[in-house]
Design a protein around this nucleic acid. Structure first.
Length: 271
DNA sequence: CCATATACCTGGCAGC
DNA sequence: TGCTGCCAGGTATATG
């Protein structure tokens, strides 16, 4: 579910409301991707200092240590003054004096991990080799082009790998390549400088627009205040195999790349 | 170092 | 109606 826009929309939907909240309790449900790494009891009395995003991870900074949250494929957060009794897929309740932050995650690919510091997070090899943030101003065309020159695999898979630029997932990789007019199977290293520049601009534009639209709700994404996203309504190619291209009416095609489905327009996107 | 495959887990849906 | 197989927004890890 959650790529950069969904994670960012989620962050914005509760960051201010949980700011300075005091942790009363932490209740964990079924096991997630990794163990919490600390006893929930020891978090009682800590305060939430801020909520940041790094790639698709959310970082809850506490006055001592931090909680690292990941939504996996099917996760969503909800922040409300009071939560009803937890259902079978609610696996974390962070109870604070300002409200309860609940993680709902049917597939349990998500994670909640405590670390004493960001240095410790890296030591646990969690936020290992993440690339640059595409919307932070540190995303430079020239460095992007240089990095792509070193990669022989298909551009779609290089974008998904996230070690050059983070947080572009399976939906937005297809969308970004459509906007840039680039065939997803094109070898990254073979892209000309002007085409890399178009791709760079497309990444920034598509992700910015998707955040504005509240993310994409394909199935069940909702922000922490329960809002669905609208970007999927304007998706050019994702999920539209067989449907006419919105630009040239050629039927959109799909293919498998590294076990993930890719969508593209064979006319608008050149190898 | 690089590239690709695999595992994790559950629910929804098409097809029989 | 009920079963089976396949698909789904991610990513650390193993393997070549």
């Amino acid at each position: 579910m959650p790529e950069l826009p969904e994670v960012e929309v989620t962050r914005r939907s509760f960051a201010d409301r949980i700011q300075s909240a005091r942790i009363v309790d932490l209740r964990m449900g079924k096991p997630l991707r990794w163990p919490l790494g600390v006893t929930p009891l020891s978090l009682q009395g800590r305060h939430v200092v801020g909520v940041r995003r790094r790639g698709k991870y959310l970082l809850l900074d506490l006055d001592e240590g931090l909680l690292l949250l990941h939504l996996g494929m099917s996760g969503s957060l909800n922040f409300a003054p009071v939560q009803p009794e937890a259902g079978p897929h609610d696996h974390m309740d962070l109870v604070t004096d300002k409200g309860v932050l609940r993680l709902h995650d049917p597939r349990r690919f998500g994670a909640v991990v405590w670390a004493p510091s960001e240095r410790a997070v890296k030591a646990q090899k969690l936020l290992g080799h993440l690339g640059v943030e595409p919307l932070d101003g540190g995303f430079e065309v020239h460095a992007f082009a240089l990095a792509l020159k070193k990669r022989q695999s298909a551009i779609k898979q290089v974008l998904l790998a996230g070690d050059i630029v983070v947080a572009v997932g399976n939906i937005y990789a297809s969308e970004v390549l459509f906007m840039a007019g680039i065939r997803p199977t094109t070898q990254a290293a073979r892209l000309s400088k002007p085409r890399v520049a178009r791709l760079h601009a497309a990444i920034v534009q598509v992700l910015t627009r998707a955040v504005q639209q509240g993310g994409s709700t394909l199935k069940d994404f909702v922000s922490a205040e329960g809002r669905t996203g609208y970007f999927q309504l304007e998706a050019a190619v994702y999920g539209r195999a067989g449907a006419p291209c919105r630009v040239c009416a050629t039927p959109i095609r799909s293919l498998l790349q590294g076990q993930r489905t890719t969508f593209y327009c064979p006319t608008c996107q050149k190898p």
